[in-house]
Simulated scan of single mutants.
Amino acid sequence: MKNIKHELQNIIYPVEPFGETGKLKKIQSFLRRNAETGAGVKKQKHLKSEEAAILIAFAKAEGLFYHNEILEKDFIGAGAEQRVFRYDDFSVIKTNDSIFYSSWLDYFNSLLIHNYFFPATAYEFIGFKIIQDTLFAVVRQDFILATEPVNLEIVKNFLAYNGFENTRNNDYINQEIGLIFEDLHDENVLSRNGVLFFIDTVFYLLDKFYE
């Protein structure tokens, strides 16, 4: 478990430059550097409106806006935090305004953590889009077709085996890593031929993660 924590720390808050140069890591690194100009990542309390303004300026300068039209005819469904659209025969795109997170940095940290734990359903950040004066991240993800209803007790046992304790309902915590994992209801975890696929995840870092 300590190795996992160290690997995650090297992804989220590396001492040395991290090798990934994709758009997702580029944005996360920018936001982390911006946070570090204050009291440190774990103590930052950003006003999201100010953070969004800085992020928009950076995205414009770096060409990180998604200019393709997102059509309502391709709309598939929505949760509390995002809307889902058909992208092609094999993948979907999701728009998210980071409503579940206190900062955009927290949102991008969560994406990186998801990609570490669940590479089969990794998020590909493809750009930002402003919709009705609100900033959204646009991510692409492979489409998973469920073949049977997911058994949440199996999900609970799987997570317990990997060090995540159930705290309430569909929320979990890993005390050793310093990681909260929430909202794992039966629409966010799918079962295909007996294999679990985590498609929508919400991760939060605790202060002890940085220790």
Rank of each mutant, 00 (worst) to 15 (best):
K2A: 15
N3H: 11
H6G: 06
Q9G: 10
N10W: 07
V15M: 07
F18I: 02
G19L: 09
G19N: 15
T21N: 09
T21C: 15
T21L: 14
G22R: 10
L24K: 00
K25P: 02
I27P: 00
S29A: 12
S29D: 15
S29L: 07
A35K: 08
A35F: 10
T37G: 08
G38T: 10
A39V: 12
V41H: 09
K43D: 07
K43G: 02
Q44M: 14
E51H: 01
E51L: 01
A53V: 14
A53Y: 11
L55G: 01
I56S: 00
A57Y: 12
F58A: 03
F58W: 14
A59N: 06
G63V: 07
G63F: 08
L64N: 10
L71Y: 11
D74H: 13
A78F: 09
A80D: 13
A80Q: 14
E81R: 07
Q82G: 08
D89H: 14
F90I: 13
I93R: 05
K94D: 05
N96Y: 04
F100G: 11
F100K: 12
Y101D: 07
Y101T: 07
L105H: 01
Y107H: 07
F108A: 00
N109F: 12
L111V: 06
I113Q: 00
Y116H: 07
P119S: 11
A122P: 02
E124H: 09
G127E: 10
I130S: 08
I131D: 11
D133W: 12
V138H: 05
V139S: 03
D142P: 04
T147S: 12
T147H: 02
T147P: 04
N151L: 09
L152Y: 05
L152A: 05
L152G: 05
E153D: 09
K156Y: 01
F158S: 11
L159V: 05
F164E: 00
T167K: 09
D171L: 01
G178R: 03
D183K: 07
N188W: 03
V189L: 09
G194I: 06
V195A: 13
F197Y: 15
F197C: 03
F198H: 09
F198L: 02
V202L: 11
V202C: 12
F203P: 00
Y204L: 11
D207P: 08
D207V: 11
F209D: 01
